[in-house]
Amino acid sequence: MFHVAPTTRKRKVRIATTSLSGCFGCHMSLLDIDERLLALAELVEFDRSPITDIKHCGPCDIAIVEGGVCNAENVHVLRELRANAKVLVALGACAVNGGLPAQRNHLDVGECLTRVYTHRSEGMKGSVPSDPELPLLLDKVHPINEVVRVDYFVPGCPPSGDAIWKYLTDLIDGRIPRLEHPMLRFD
């Protein structure tokens, strides 16, 4: 039914995925390739990913990063993926340009937090969370190419399942990946 590369492949392509400052919408869109997931499972195996729940990434072929960089933990995760992956793909609007979380970038982050957590109606008074377990927020939300080198960009909010399938299979089969109208979308 679907084209799958010849079975002479020596080993499966190892893929790591993560969602930084994203909404997991891009991962949901990856699942939207539906029954092609079975074909994908023939071609790839997953390292660190919400799909496997592996916490730290080992050497892999492709790292797929959803979401921008909004806190210190995002920076560590992103650098670990870059250090381990041969090819790093920015998946979705947030990874590509910061996306909707970056709409706070023209505001002061301290004021944002104060407004959100302390300016509440009577009886709901709170304070800005300060638990040391919480990752430190950065003053700006960054596209991931401002933190590490990025090999490929797939825009979209989220990119459609078809676009992700096209891009992934291009990459896995060794073609230069390309998205054109109508698969190339920013919304």
């Binding site: 590509v96 340009n97 970056a102 490929y152 960009f153 797939v154």
Partner: peptide, 9 residues
């Protein structure tokens, strides 16, 4: 086929 804005925002 502009895939990334590339420059600092």
């Amino acid at each position: 086929e502009m895939l990334t804005p590339h420059y600092a925002h």
